[in-house]
Design a binder for these strands. Structure first.
Ligand SMILES: NC(=O)c1ccc[n+]([C@@H]2O[C@H](COP(=O)([O-])OP(=O)(O)OC[C@H]3O[C@@H](n4cnc5c(N)ncnc54)[C@H](O)[C@@H]3O)[C@@H](O)[C@H]2O)c1
Ligand SMILES: NC(=O)c1ccc[n+]([C@@H]2O[C@H](COP(=O)([O-])OP(=O)(O)OC[C@H]3O[C@@H](n4cnc5c(N)ncnc54)[C@H](O)[C@@H]3O)[C@@H](O)[C@H]2O)c1
Lengths: 230, 230
DNA sequence: AGGCGCTTGTGAAGAGGTGCACAAATCGCG
DNA sequence: CGCGATTTGTGCACCTCTTCACAAGCGCCT
């Protein structure tokens, strides 16, 4: 389930504020989901709640981390240390979430050798050597779109089976390889769509505007978080 | 539909390579979705295809952009010009997708005045003035998590009704305000989950591992793109 | 020990998305 | 002009995800 990481984040926050147990209601409202859904999700990984009491925060964290395979730190290789790659390499928030940036790779010779956050940028040709040194389990692509497919192919070739892609393009990968993409422009466009719909609804409350703006309520934009709390 | 932006991106790519029309099959495979689903999506915004021929690329681009409200460039305000904010501010890929970064805001006085990509960083207190100058339709939060809620409140207070949040936390906003979040650690954790599942499946092909790893096939991790093409 | 309030876990109903398969429509060509 | 090839648009069945509602279980208080 893709919601498990969100539960995990909320649980860590609760643990830090001293809570030892949470009710499904409490955790659900912290994450912004229905409490029944949360209970059903949690029940899929076994029964770790106590009726009448709730869930043991620490125990649940362990359980979720175990299911997510975060029991030990996972090493990720970052390919493309440009604008965005620099930000990612300099980000210290991954460590606490179970990840360690183990290698920085770039094709630009003038970038190779640069030191960022204690890591030296290496040439992308060294990829196979890097993978041999470290047990890389995830590759992150932060190169321009035209180079992304080639980089993905290289990652797959050296045995990486999970890729996070920031380039705005679709990657072709063999079966068994997982790709997730983050495209900020798409996020903005989805917001733009809602903005557009809100605007035309207030402008023409009765008649309705174009075909789509007249559609019922909230359509289906994945992962939105609309109107939580006050 | 959250797939519309993806279609749009693929259509732009097709337009650049000279295609004047596309069949649903062609476009679907470029995006990595079922062709029937694509046709159904497209039929929701009216009939703009010609049977026996396909869809007119240019016309379809116009239609989708119109539905998404991208007919004119939308102005976005970026709050938090740190590590990640710099990368976003320096990114030139938004313009071609319908967005213009119109303002950079930060709370740190030592950052105020800095010039990035032709824009001057202004103090976050000037937010209301900035919104008055420009018609800001989207706010982007790239501050540390503890500051994110306060920034969101300020954005809402000055009339912003769409927010893209990079801070790893849940935002509370009043009804009518849309929030989308991008949490890279969550993306990595979802990949980690699949990685973990793949590992335990190959290790114990018959017995199956823990409760969850024994679940059927592909679970439900939103937005994955698994094994497309070869 | 017994009862009471609270919370989990889950069956069942509902809603929505997905994909197949096919009729309707259009184009090109003989 | 008619026919076949091609492709759209969609009815229908299926399936997953969501949500409600409630029984079962647990702890605490009397
Ligand atoms: N910067 C952002 O805020 C932002 C936002 C959204 C999307 N993106 C996307 O992220 C990607 C990177 O953006 P950026 O702004 O960092 O671009 P950039 O041009 O600053 O950096 C790209 C880096 O990739 C390296 N590179 C190019 N080809 C390579 C190859 N074959 N192997 C290894 N490295 C290679 C380049 O040397 C460069 O250092 C782009 O696809 C962009 O569309 C960036
Ligand atoms: N850098 C990354 O690659 C990365 C990756 C994933 C998530 N994030 C998240 O993005 C956010 C920003 O990350 P970062 O690395 O850029 O952090 P950063 O510390 O480098 O930058 C944060 C910026 O926000 C400013 N700020 C703080 N409080 C503010 C306020 N109230 N109003 C306006 N500005 C304020 C700070 O002055 C600073 O310039 C964080 O929440 C982080 O968790 C970053």
């Amino acid at each position: 389930m893709s919601r498990l990481p969100e539960y995990l984040r909320a649980l860590h926050a609760l643990a830090e504020t001293g809570h030892e147990t949470v009710s499904s209601e409490g955790l659900a409202s912290a994450v912004g989901v229905n409490s029944a859904k949360l209970r059903k999700d949690l029940s899929h990984l076994g029964s770790y709640g106590t009726r009448g009491v709730g869930y043991d925060v620490a125990l649940l964290i362990d359980q979720i981390e175990s299911v997510l395979g975060l029991t030990q730190c996972r090493a990720v290789a970052l390919v493309g240390v440009g604008n965005l790659g620099h930000a990612l390499a300099g980000y210290d928030g991954f460590a606490s979430r179970g990840f360690r940036i183990a290698a920085l790779l770039d094709a630009d010779p003038s970038r190779v050798g640069e030191r960022i956050n204690g890591l030296v940028v290496r040439h992308v040709d060294e990829l196979s050597r890097v993978v041999a040194e470290e047990t890389i389990s995830i590759g992150v692509i932060a190169t321009p779109a035209p180079a992304a497919q080639a980089v993905a192919d290289e990652l797959v070739a050296v045995g990486v089976t999970s890729i996070l892609n920031f380039a705005p393009c679709v990657l072709s990968v063999p079966e068994g390889v997982d790709v997730r993409k983050v495209d900020l422009a798409i996020e903005l466009q989805i917001l733009s769509f809602h903005e557009h719909r809100k605007a035309s609804l207030t402008a023409l409350p009765a008649t309705g505007g174009s075909a789509l703006t007249a559609l019922p309520g909230g359509l289906a934009t994945t992962d939105t978080q609309e109107a939580i709390g006050t």
